[in-house]
Amino acid sequence: MKRVKAFAPATVANVSCGFDILGFALDSLGDTVELVAKESPGLTVKSIKGDGGKLPLEEDKNTCSIAIQAMLDAMGSKQGFDIYLEKGLPLGSGMGSSAASAVAALVAANELLGNPFDKKDLLPFAIVAEKAACGAAHADNVAPSLLGGFVLIRDYFPPDVIKLPVPEGLCCTLLHPHYQLNTSDSRSVLRERIPLKDAITQSGNVAGLIAGLFQSDFELISRSLKDVIAEPYRASLLPGFETVKSAMLRAGALGMGISGSGPTLFVLSKGAHLHEKFGSEAKKIYDQLGLGLDMYFSKINTQGGGLIQS
């Protein structure tokens, strides 16, 4: 086999109280990578579609090639690949765009190399690419994009990730307002020291959310989707955030939070029947703010990155 195509899904990181330790994968939205094995060594990013010409083709800067090179180095392999990336995610959106590219590339490369790694063992290589993309070795996007479902990152040294159950009927609506928010700005407003009271509250909410997932207890999930560490400070960077959140909760949402570092917002619900209502209410608010809005509906993707059968 000389040519393989793989897809990796968009993700929501942090999930309110799970700052840097929780994430989940989405259906349909994501990136596609096609790899062609070469006779000669070296990685070449041949083309990128859907990025508006913004992403680098240089192999030492592109997350696809960085992830694959980390994998090849671990194997001591000189295998070469031509890389064709198709972006299905907006850049800088808080949907795990760089993570999806890296994961799709790794899944494809692993297949062409004869599957030397189990899927979960690809995670360290994806983390290397994520660090190159955003300056920090976070796994709350790459882990769910790779493994699917809800994922808990218990530790980073070494990576220790636990896949959590997904209650039947849990759905997500994404609200992507049309404005730019830099990850560095989102990080800069966070406190370096957390009061004991807030740490206790946040720990309780994380534990409650995980228990709710295991027990399929939607009321417990709803009560636990509260962030006292990041959201109170990041909300000021997001026009209309508090107004939108209040509207979503009135409309029947389990909870709403910031996807990654924003500006995309995620709204969790029991079932799909509220999606149009969420979108309608959100659009009214963003129209008043003079901002465009893209909306996506998704069930939770429990499979993660995988091959596309031709």
Score class of each variant (00 low, 15 high):
R3N: 12
K5G: 09
A6W: 02
F7I: 06
T11P: 04
N14L: 09
L22H: 05
E34V: 10
P41K: 10
G42S: 10
T44V: 13
S47T: 09
K49Q: 13
K54Q: 14
E59Q: 14
A67Q: 03
A67S: 12
A70V: 08
L91P: 02
G92E: 00
G94E: 02
S98P: 00
V107R: 08
E111Q: 14
L113S: 02
D118R: 15
L122V: 02
I127H: 06
N141Q: 08
A143W: 00
S145Q: 08
S145C: 05
S145K: 09
F150Q: 01
L152K: 13
F157H: 00
P159S: 10
L164R: 06
L164M: 09
C171F: 12
C172P: 06
T183S: 11
L190A: 05
T201M: 15
T201C: 14
Q202V: 03
A207S: 14
Q215P: 06
S216E: 14
D217Q: 12
E219L: 15
E231C: 04
L238M: 12
L238E: 04
G240P: 07
F241N: 09
T243C: 10
M248F: 04
R250C: 08
R250F: 09
L254R: 08
G257A: 07
S259V: 00
G260D: 00
S261T: 07
P263N: 10
A272C: 13
H273S: 14
E281Q: 13
D287F: 03
D294E: 15
K299M: 14
T302A: 12
G304C: 07
